[in-house]
Design a protein around this nucleic acid. Structure first.
Lengths: 175, 175
DNA sequence: CGCGTGATTGAAACCCTTCAAGTTTAGTGG
DNA sequence: CCACTAAACTTGAAGGGTTTCAATCACGCG
C-alpha cells in the first residue's frame, strides 16, 4: 500500500464490524461513501424486475467497494452492498481533494484499475462461454470460489445456480 | 463543453481526417493516446480466439475513445480502434498534469462517467435478454442504431448478426 | 434433532447459434 | 450512370447451451 493510501485510510473514520448478512447500503439510499474492507467479504448487487439478484462485485480484504452511480449523481444508490461474511470495514467519504496532487493521482490510479477490470469483464461477458467465465473467475479470485456461495458466483457470472452446478460437475469429470 | 475541456482540446495536436475502414490503433501497438472525435464515428473492438470481433465501444462526434489497458500498463494495446465512417479526429496524449487541479477534476469526471456507463453495461449483460439489450441500445444511442452496420451492433450486444436481424423482425411485427 | 437454506440432478422448454441459401445493398470500374 | 461484384442482411432448419421447474440430497444452525 502506498504512503498516500495509508494517509487516506488514517484520516478515515475508525473501522467497524458488520455481521454476515448485514446491509451497508441499500438501493435507494442517499449516501456518498464507499467501504474499505479490512477483513471478511462484502458484495454489491442489484435486483432486477423479475426479482433476480445480480452480483456486481465481490470485495474481500483490501478491496474497495462503492456505488459509482451515487458517486456521480450524489443521488440515490443503485446497488445494494451487503456483508457476506462477518467483516470489519472502514467508511470512506468521497471528498477527494483534487487540489492535492497526491490524492488526485491516487484517485485516478484507482479509477484506472477499476476501468481496466470492468473492460475485461465486459469482453468476457461478450466472448466467453459460461464455463470459460467460471474458469477465468477462479484464476482471478483463487481464494473466492471456494469461499463464496455458489449462487452468488452464478449471479456474478450471469448464469443460474443450476447452470454453475452442472459446469462444476463437468469440470471434475473432464479432469 | 467546459472551459477546461476546451483548453485541453486546444492544446492537443491539430485534427486530422481518416477514411472509413482505417485503423488508428492496432492490438499490440505501443501507443499511449486516445482520440477525440470531431465528426464521423470510430469504434474499438477485440478479436477472440475463434476470430470473432467484439465491439467494445462506439464513438460518434464529441466522444473520446482509447484503450485503457495501454493507459494502465503503458504497454501493448488490447483493443483495435478503427473508423467506421469518414471521420475527423484529434489525438489526445495521456499526459494529464495531476498538479493542475482543473485537469485532475476533468479527468476524474470523465473517468466517473465512463465507470458509470460500464457498470450499466455489465448489469445489462447480466440481466437483460438480447432484445432488451437492443432496445436499451436504441434508447441510449438513438442516432447510432440506424447509422452503424447491424453486425457491429450485434457484436456490441453480444449476439450474432442473424440473431439481431430476427429480433428486429420480431419488433416490427410486435408493433 | 429437525428445520431451512443451499446445492444437485433430471426432463422439458426456450433462446440463441450455426450453417446454408437466398436477397438486398453498397462500392467500383467501365 | 449502369453493370458487376462483394459485402451485408435476411430467412430457414437443425442443433447446442442454459434455463426453468420440480424433486431430492446435504448441511449448518437453533
Amino acid at each position: 500500500m502506498s504512503k498516500t493510501e495509508n494517509e487516506l485510510l488514517a484520516r478515515a473514520e475508525p473501522s467497524f464490524k458488520v455481521k454476515k448478512g448485514e446491509v451497508l447500503l441499500k438501493s435507494g439510499d442517499t449516501v456518498t461513501s464507499g467501504f474499505y474492507v479490512m477483513s471478511g467479504c462484502l458484495r454489491s448487487y442489484v435486483v432486477d424486475s423479475k426479482g433476480k439478484e445480480h452480483t456486481y462485485q465481490f470485495a474481500p480484504e483490501g478491496w474497495l467497494i462503492s456505488d459509482l452511480e451515487v458517486f456521480k449523481n450524489k443521488q440515490k444508490a443503485f446497488l445494494t452492498i451487503e456483508a457476506i461474511e462477518d467483516s470489519e470495514v472502514k467508511r470512506l467519504l468521497f471528498d477527494f481533494d483534487a487540489n492535492n496532487p497526491d490524492f488526485a493521482k491516487l484517485a485516478m490510479g484507482k479509477m484506472q484499475n477499476r476501468l481496466y477490470a470492468l473492460q475485461h469483464r465486459i469482453i468476457q461477458l461478450l466472448s466467453y462461454t459460461a464455463e470459460e467465465r467460471y474458469q477465468e473467475f477462479i484464476k482471478t479470485y483463487p481464494d473466492l470460489f471456494s469461499r463464496v456461495p455458489l449462487k452468488m458466483i452464478a449471479s456474478y457470472l450471469g448464469i443460474t445456480p443450476e447452470g454453475l452446478s452442472r459446469i462444476r460437475k463437468e469440470m471434475v469429470k473432464g479432469k
